[in-house]
């Protein structure tokens, strides 16, 4: 898994690529924490290059959402692969995190 953060005026975009499972989720968690600890609570998670995310990874998203909301911001997702959508729904992510189809709309939501 590779991670890249880009800062915009109103939010940060974190792009991950590869597989997010129990092996790689801690690195994702650290990347989100680094953004939040930097005093930023608006995050777009770009999943266009993510090919797998387990419940451990989905829990990182929910924990990040908790941290962002606490600071008055939010985490949103963009470019979620079709085959992942059911598991995001079943793991509760869809209940608590907005999902956008394209990056411009996701960034524009802040």
């Amino acid at each position: 898994m590779e991670l890249q953060t880009t800062s915009y005026k109103r939010c940060d975009v974190l792009k991950a690529s590869g597989r997010i499972d129990s092996q790689t989720a801690p690195a994702l968690e650290q990347a989100f924490n680094a953004i939040v600890n930097d005093g930023k609570s608006g995050i777009v998670f770009d999943m266009s290059a993510v090919d797998f995310i387990s419940s451990r990874g989905l829990w990182v998203l929910l924990e990040t959402q908790k941290a962002c909301k606490k600071e008055g911001g939010k985490l949103v997702l963009v470019n979620v692969a079709e085959e992942m959508k059911e598991s995001l729904d079943l793991a509760g992510v869809k209940h608590f995190v907005e999902i956008y189809a394209d990056l411009i709309t996701a960034v524009g939501s802040f």
Partner: peptide, 24 residues
Amino acid sequence: SPNYTVPLEQLKPRGAGLYLMRQM
């Protein structure tokens, strides 16, 4: 089984893996 009807702050990770296995 996980309970997603609770507020976000009260959400717990336990049970999500087994629940996903049974649904998938």
